[in-house]
Amino acid sequence: MTGTAHTTETDLLVVGGGPAGCAAVVMAAGVGMRTLLLEARSELCGRLRHVRSLENVLGGFASGPEFAAAAAADVARSAGCRVELGARVVRLDARDDRVVATLESGGSRTAAHAVVATGTGPLGPADTDWLHDPEGLARAPLWEADPAAWEGRTVLVLGADRPLGTLLRADPTARVRFLVAHPPEDDYKTAEVRADPRVEPVPVRRVALGSDRRRRIAVTITTAAGDTLSRTAEGAYLNIGNAPVLLPGDLVPDSTGWCPPDRQHPRIHVAGDLRSARAQRIMTAMGSGGEAALRAYYALCGVPDRSARPERPE
């Protein structure tokens, strides 16, 4: 492409193969950019393949696996794009004339610009001040759960994040009871699931987990009102929320740990869930991925960014 620095392997590195990264690749191909997509997992849109119900995306996709397959196919059809799966980036550095991505394997990849779409990872007990789980009984994120496997049982859900509603919609007839323990400030998150008879939301100050003699999970709850409840559950899943997956190097987080696009080096363009805690949706991720690729394209073409400047009246 015209304007690409000769010291780089390609025009654009895309780090992360979720919805934002895939959208960036497709947009880049549409404007003639050469792209290298680096994805740490063995497949694109890996987390989406566990989501059995989708309601907030265009295209008529009813499930995450359907969407993931379509996104992977679109990337495969994108001209000028190479994909490296199992390529975990451990550092990203911005130079005057290029971006350098260092891989866990020890190699590196360079490009004129980079779109970073590493997304988020689930928070754990250590990230809270209300959950005590010394035996590590709650390890798996809720989006990995299968309600059909818990037929007739009680499952403890730690946190009231959005995957709970998705899970319930995907299995509307599953006979499973969800005991949802969450801090009082997250009570608003239970609005979409509170009417489901399978859900018992409990605002808590503290939750302690242990094993009982029957290998069930013994749950001791101090409620927000100060009462103590003792319950048992056959399984427990984390649903506390997510934190941004940051790369060491020149990625610039704000005071909350997220990475606003306007804080980044001119050669680094942030897309997807990594940008903000308030915009974690597939549709917004895809839009930001396309926008990030366009920003890189205009920079390569030497088109100045006047988006922050008000238009002068004629």
Results as ranks from 00 to 15, higher is better:
residue 146 D to N: 13
residue 108 S to Y: 00
residue 95 R to D: 10
residue 162 R to I: 15
residue 153 R to I: 00
residue 169 R to D: 15
residue 99 V to G: 03
residue 176 V to T: 14
residue 89 V to R: 00
residue 162 R to S: 12
residue 95 R to F: 08
residue 141 P to W: 08
residue 125 P to I: 03
residue 150 W to M: 08
residue 111 A to M: 08
residue 96 D to V: 10
residue 112 A to Q: 12
residue 90 V to Q: 01
residue 106 G to D: 09
residue 88 R to T: 14
residue 145 A to L: 06
residue 95 R to Q: 13
residue 89 V to C: 05
residue 138 A to C: 07
residue 85 L to R: 12
residue 133 D to V: 08
residue 166 T to L: 11
residue 178 F to C: 05
residue 174 A to Q: 04
residue 138 A to F: 09
residue 137 L to A: 06
residue 133 D to I: 11
residue 135 E to V: 14
residue 159 G to D: 07
residue 177 R to K: 12
residue 97 D to G: 03
residue 104 E to Q: 11
residue 157 V to L: 00
residue 172 P to V: 02
residue 117 A to N: 12
residue 174 A to W: 12
residue 116 V to K: 00
residue 92 L to P: 01
residue 130 W to Y: 10
residue 99 V to E: 02
residue 158 L to M: 11
residue 103 L to N: 05
residue 129 D to K: 10
residue 154 T to W: 04
residue 109 R to H: 12
residue 155 V to C: 00
residue 120 T to F: 06
residue 156 L to Y: 00
residue 92 L to Q: 00
residue 87 A to Y: 07
residue 142 L to W: 01
residue 134 P to V: 06
residue 112 A to H: 07
residue 137 L to R: 09
residue 174 A to H: 06
residue 134 P to F: 03
residue 154 T to M: 08
residue 104 E to G: 12
residue 144 E to S: 15
residue 168 L to T: 04
residue 100 V to K: 01
residue 91 R to L: 04
residue 97 D to F: 01
residue 127 D to A: 15
residue 110 T to L: 00
residue 149 A to W: 10
residue 137 L to Q: 13
residue 139 R to Q: 15
residue 100 V to D: 01
residue 169 R to T: 11
residue 104 E to S: 08
residue 155 V to T: 09
residue 138 A to P: 06
residue 172 P to H: 03
residue 178 F to Q: 07
residue 163 P to I: 05
residue 106 G to A: 06
residue 137 L to V: 14
residue 158 L to R: 04
residue 163 P to M: 05
residue 116 V to S: 01
residue 160 A to S: 13
residue 129 D to S: 15
residue 140 A to H: 12
residue 130 W to K: 04
residue 158 L to K: 05
residue 100 V to T: 05
residue 147 P to S: 02
residue 105 S to Y: 01
residue 89 V to D: 00
residue 176 V to G: 05
residue 86 G to F: 09
residue 167 L to N: 11
residue 145 A to P: 00
residue 156 L to W: 04
residue 119 G to F: 09
residue 88 R to G: 07
residue 133 D to L: 02
residue 162 R to A: 15
residue 105 S to L: 05
residue 129 D to T: 13
